[in-house]
């Protein structure tokens, strides 16, 4: 895979004010790198406005956007030829087979007739629709429909996929499969993916980067690793005897606190691990968990509620 120097999406002081006086985006600075990026926090106007601007469908009130190196205001059709978009809502006809539908949309993405057929077959294979692809879409389950929606976004061989709530309406096994698929597209296929999702746990599972937008402004953009960094706390869970364990650990000079069913031990250095191990062994306790506490993406939203003024400066 070639290394792309420029960001996949780059927005500079992007502002969108609607005639009614609603400000959907205000002075948004954004830079999306290759890989899978989660887009969170932009409910309602902000998210759909951003998608429309990225696809070059509406002109922002001010600011610039480049998508795949193309100017969104000048080169909308070129961008749309190279971006696959999977909408949040139902968008599939009931009385057409998946193959026919995806082939037609392949044509609409600019593929010649034969290539559209081949690419549609490939896209459906990659999303895991096999013999059912000749059946009418109306007979599909929610999970299969989501796959068709993904296949139509994939058919034009995009450089960027915009997925809007791709797990919407899926049950747990359907979600698992969809997330695994997105992960594969982002890593094996080498296609940059932007996933808009309200589910932070999902974003933590599949994304490399995260962009959080709030009130039309960038709240945070960072790699997911940096947002889920390990904290210097060790969570210990034992099936029984957590009180004596706590007393012994404190007796050994460790800082211990109780959080839910877990004991949190301050991790000052590697000897702490051995102290914990030996104490548990001495007390003959069943150890069910020994884990680093990590930051969660969710804290991003919790913190803002606590001290709004400082975060608003971001």
């Amino acid at each position: 895979m070639s290394v792309i120097e420029q960001p996949i999406i780059e927005a500079k002081s992007l502002t969108m004010r609607y005639p009614g006086g609603v400000t959907a985006l205000s002075d948004l600075e954004l830079s999306v790198q290759p890989g899978i990026t989660g887009l969170v926090g932009a409910n309602g106007a902000g998210k759909s406005t951003l998608i429309k601007i990225l696809l070059g469908l509406i002109t922002p009130s001010s600011g610039q956007v480049r998508v795949l190196g193309l100017d969104a205001q000048e080169q909308g059709p070129e961008i749309r030829a190279r971006v696959g978009y999977m909408p949040e809502h139902d968008c599939l006809p009931a009385d057409v087979s998946a193959t026919e539908f995806v082939t037609h949309l392949g044509r609409m993405s600019g593929l010649p007739p034969t290539a559209a057929k081949e690419q549609a077959a490939e896209a459906l294979r990659h999303v895991g629709l096999h013999e059912e692809r000749y059946r009418q879409i109306g007979t599909f389950s929610t999970g299969m429909k989501q796959r068709v929606k993904l296949a139509q976004a994939l058919v034009g061989n995009p450089g960027l996929l915009l997925l809007d709530e791709p797990t919407n309406g899926l049950d747990p096994s359907g979600r698992d499969a969809m997330l695994a698929l997105i992960r594969r597209i982002g890593s094996e296929f080498g296609i940059a993916v932007v996933v808009a999702s309200h589910l932070l746990s999902e974003i933590e599972r599949i994304c490399d980067h995260l962009v959080a937008i709030d009130g039309g402004k960038l709240l945070r953009a960072a790699s997911l690793d940096s947002m889920t960094q390990a904290l210097p706390w060790l969570a210990i869970e034992v099936d029984e005897g957590s009180e004596p364990l706590r007393a012994r650990l404190e007796g050994a000079g460790l800082t211990v606190s109780l959080q839910g069913r877990a004991l949190l031990v301050r991790l000052d250095g590697d000897p702490v691990f051995d102290t914990v191990r030996d104490t548990i062994a001495d007390l003959d306790l069943p150890l069910t968990r020994l884990e680093h506490r990590r930051h969660h993406v969710e804290e991003l939203f919790e913190r803002r509620e606590l001290d709004e003024p400082t975060e608003a400066k971001l």
């Binding site: 051995d274 548990i280 306790l285 069910t288 968990r289 020994l290 884990e291 680093h292």
Partner: peptide, 15 residues
């Protein structure tokens, strides 16, 4: 925990 201690292995994580 005891097996680790007896074998002299440092236990880092149990998930």
């Amino acid at each position: 925990a005891r097996s680790c201690r007896d074998a002299g292995i440092g236990l880092r994580e149990v998930i």
